Computed example of a mutant assay.
Amino acid sequence: MFQIIGIVVLFGCVFGSYLMSGGSMAPILHSLAFELMGIGGAAVASVLISNDLHTIKGMGGGMGKVFGGAKWKASDYKDLLSLLFLLTKTMKSKGVIALESHIEKPHDSTIFSRFPKIMKDHFAIDFICDTLRMMTMNLEDPHQVEDAMEKQLEKHHHEALHPAHAMQSVADALPALGIVIAVLGVIKTMGAITEPPEVLGGMIGGALVGTFLGVMLAYGLVGPFATRMNGVVEEEGAFYKIIQAVLVAHLHGNAAQISVEIGRGNIPSTAQPSFAEMEEALNNMPNE
């Protein structure tokens, strides 16, 4: 919602101030299609040249995140803690044998199936199952497990940021691409130097539209989009950090409820359930 409001304010203030000062939209509208074709086409070409297909698809998906925000909401953090509570409780009370059927085939698990939204996130499920599998293989050194999890998180976070970095590269290039298109307009104007001043003035004005569009798109739209994409990735990354916090706490020998409470303390404040809310959710969980 705020992103849409921001776009409306951007165009309203920029073009509103221009019109209020006596400017005419005619020169801009006359050149707009050609300038957008040149700048937009060059920007798309730069994306295709500098990125692979996975990153390009990620940029498209990232635009959805710009307007939709992070996919994990407060209720999802509560579900995650409930899931980890059941898994660690099962491991502590029934042993690793009872846990193996859940982590080897999570899609058939009666524990995982209670949390369908988390099940759709392949990294979250793999991250949980791979870590618990390491524990069942007698890798019980909390520091080794924490280090292995940290490396997985770093790799995933680095890959998730690729689309935002690619978008920022486009923003950085747009002002220069606008100048390129403006220079072509100046070349065209110089080729018509014998025309009367009013014609030359219109041609120069059209050429400057390219510079204007490049700068405005870079700093008014594409740059903020890249910043927002980066922020959403950071928000979503906090979700996976909770998995690490709970499982490492479990390895240190804490009871399942204590491990979950340690994880709850690491949840971002805007999505953090209260102690009472979490306790009620865990007490209402059916026994496995």
Results as ranks from 00 to 15, higher is better:
167 M>G: 07
176 A>Q: 05
150 E>P: 00
167 M>W: 04
187 I>V: 12
167 M>R: 06
160 A>I: 03
170 V>R: 10
215 V>Y: 05
211 T>C: 09
192 A>V: 07
190 M>P: 04
192 A>R: 14
174 L>Q: 13
147 D>K: 15
162 H>G: 02
180 V>F: 00
202 G>S: 11
148 A>H: 08
186 V>K: 02
217 L>G: 02
211 T>W: 02
149 M>H: 08
216 M>A: 11
206 G>N: 07
153 L>I: 11
205 G>L: 00
161 L>R: 12
204 I>R: 03
185 G>N: 11
155 K>R: 06
155 K>S: 09
182 A>C: 14
161 L>M: 15
147 D>A: 15
158 H>S: 15
197 P>V: 14
179 I>L: 12
162 H>T: 10
187 I>Y: 01
192 A>C: 06
208 L>D: 01
214 G>L: 09
204 I>S: 08
214 G>Y: 07
181 I>R: 09
147 D>Y: 11
178 G>P: 04
175 P>K: 00
182 A>L: 11
213 L>V: 04
189 T>F: 02
194 T>S: 08
214 G>A: 10
148 A>W: 02
200 L>G: 07
149 M>R: 10
178 G>C: 11
187 I>A: 00
168 Q>G: 01
223 G>D: 10
154 E>V: 09
165 H>E: 10
182 A>W: 03
216 M>V: 13
196 P>G: 07
210 G>K: 00
195 E>T: 05
188 K>T: 06
188 K>N: 13
186 V>W: 03
203 M>G: 05
183 V>N: 12
172 D>A: 13
180 V>C: 08
156 H>A: 08
174 L>W: 13
177 L>K: 12
200 L>F: 06
172 D>C: 03
201 G>M: 00
177 L>S: 06
174 L>G: 14
188 K>Y: 07
218 A>Q: 08
167 M>C: 14
216 M>Y: 11
167 M>K: 08
159 E>Q: 11
192 A>K: 14
204 I>G: 04
158 H>W: 01
208 L>V: 02
192 A>L: 13
164 A>F: 04
154 E>N: 06
199 V>N: 10
195 E>V: 03
212 F>N: 12
146 E>F: 10
157 H>I: 05
148 A>Q: 12
190 M>G: 04
171 A>F: 04
193 I>E: 03
221 L>K: 11
199 V>D: 03
153 L>G: 08
155 K>V: 08
172 D>N: 12
153 L>H: 03
176 A>H: 03
149 M>G: 07
211 T>I: 05
196 P>A: 11
195 E>P: 01
164 A>L: 05
192 A>Q: 12
166 A>H: 06
190 M>V: 05
217 L>A: 13
179 I>D: 06
218 A>H: 07
213 L>T: 04
200 L>T: 12
173 A>Y: 02
224 P>E: 02
151 K>M: 15
153 L>V: 09
152 Q>M: 14
209 V>S: 01
150 E>N: 09
163 P>R: 10
206 G>T: 03
162 H>E: 15
195 E>A: 15
193 I>N: 08
208 L>Y: 02
